[in-house]
Amino acid sequence: MKRFKCAISQAVVIAIVGAAAAFIFNAFSANGISPFRKIADVPVVEDEPAGGETGPAPEAIRAIDLDRFREIVDSHGVVIDARTAADYREGRVPGAILLDYYEFRRSFDSVAPYLDFENEITIYCSGPVCEDSELLARELFARGYTKLLVFKGGFEAWEEAGMPVERE
């Protein structure tokens, strides 16, 4: 019983020290997050095909297909790569800007000059399964960027289609 009481006391001290260190570090870390952070509750809707009469709701993130994405890349639209810096260096969509979703607080200020509230911003991540492009779109939406497009196929679909890849 003495051993258990002692262990509990020690565990409480470890928990308090650990939690205090965690919250202090989190407060000063470039990647720190608020436990009460909200993800913008904006729907992701399929983009209307070209020439469609009715567009999606204005307050929505639009999911686009490969053809539409290629048009944007060819016309030098703003394209964001939401993957890690290592993935980005290994190969990316030509002209894409790196903005790792998990490094958002650290990287956003350097990317912000390339973004415009009036123009479309297209985001992709690794492939159809990854959620980072959508999560990044929600982060940007919360910061007032409303013309957001997500290429759900991601880099995987781009590469598989034999599209050009930029490397360092």
């Binding site: 470890i14 928990a15 650990g18 260190a21 919250f23 570090f25 608020s34 436990p35």
Partner: peptide
């Protein structure tokens, strides 16, 4: 988010 912030520090301690 609290678990994600605190758990690694508990492991470290």
């Amino acid at each position: 988010y609290v678990v994600a912030i605190v758990l690694p520090w508990m492991e470290l301690c």
